[in-house]
Amino acid sequence: MSNSAPVKISASDVKVFYGDNQALHGISMDVYQHEVISFIGPSGCGKSTFLRCMNRMNDTIDQCRVTGSILLDGRDIHEPALDVVQLRAQVGMVFQKPNPFPKSIYENIAYGPKLHGLAERKADLDDIVESSLRRAGLWNEVKDRLDQPGTGLSGGQQQRLCIARSIAVSPEVILMDEPCSALDPIATSIIEELIDELKQNFTIVIVTHNMQQAARVSDRTAFFHLGNLIEIGNTNDVFTNPQQKRTEDYITGRYG
């Protein structure tokens, strides 16, 4: 992907503190429209924390403080006029562990559109549910049991349900926090294919501890270590020709 695409998210000097602990030490980077960018690094390096800054999910944690600026389409997401509800409708999120609500499959997908008033009629809602499930590649597997609980699906299906759930509110960016870490290899490869398709319409930021996955799905890769952004570049370059010694050590398995 060329760097000519417009900048979707622009972060500069983002610092995060948990109480007295500083988790991020001034991260600056740009995310381009309709690209897949992956964050890699050893556990505890701050990659998930940074991801959660992008839709202000860190607000839900007591004692967590964020400084610096993050611009979404050139607009600061911390500015008071921007409602966090609106931000999160724009920047969706898929979590590490599949977390379908204890509701039916249909209700899981319809949850967001109902909240935001995206459908006036039942037929519209049905359309949104169907198209979201189709785009998440789950439609054929669940179309006959939409009224059954989402928690009854297999792990991989649950995660695709969660992806469908976030697609249903038509976000512009989807943040994925290690979406495959709880899944088996087959379910993982299905999700990876899905990500590949989704990037036609969405900007995708994915956190992964699996370097092969980052290499397979992402256009660009950012390497985090101890709360610092060490290196960011085209995925091929980062993996074959890392500029930093620490990146090279991590990729070659010296630590991790």
């Binding site: 609106q86 935001h116 008033g117």
Partner: peptide, 19 residues
């Protein structure tokens, strides 16, 4: 009526309306 998923700007407008 929305066929597939509505175009982003339209969706955003609806979200803002509901706020």
């Amino acid at each position: 009526p929305i066929k597939a998923v509505a175009a982003p700007s339209q969706v955003q407008q609806k979200v803002i309306d509901s706020l």
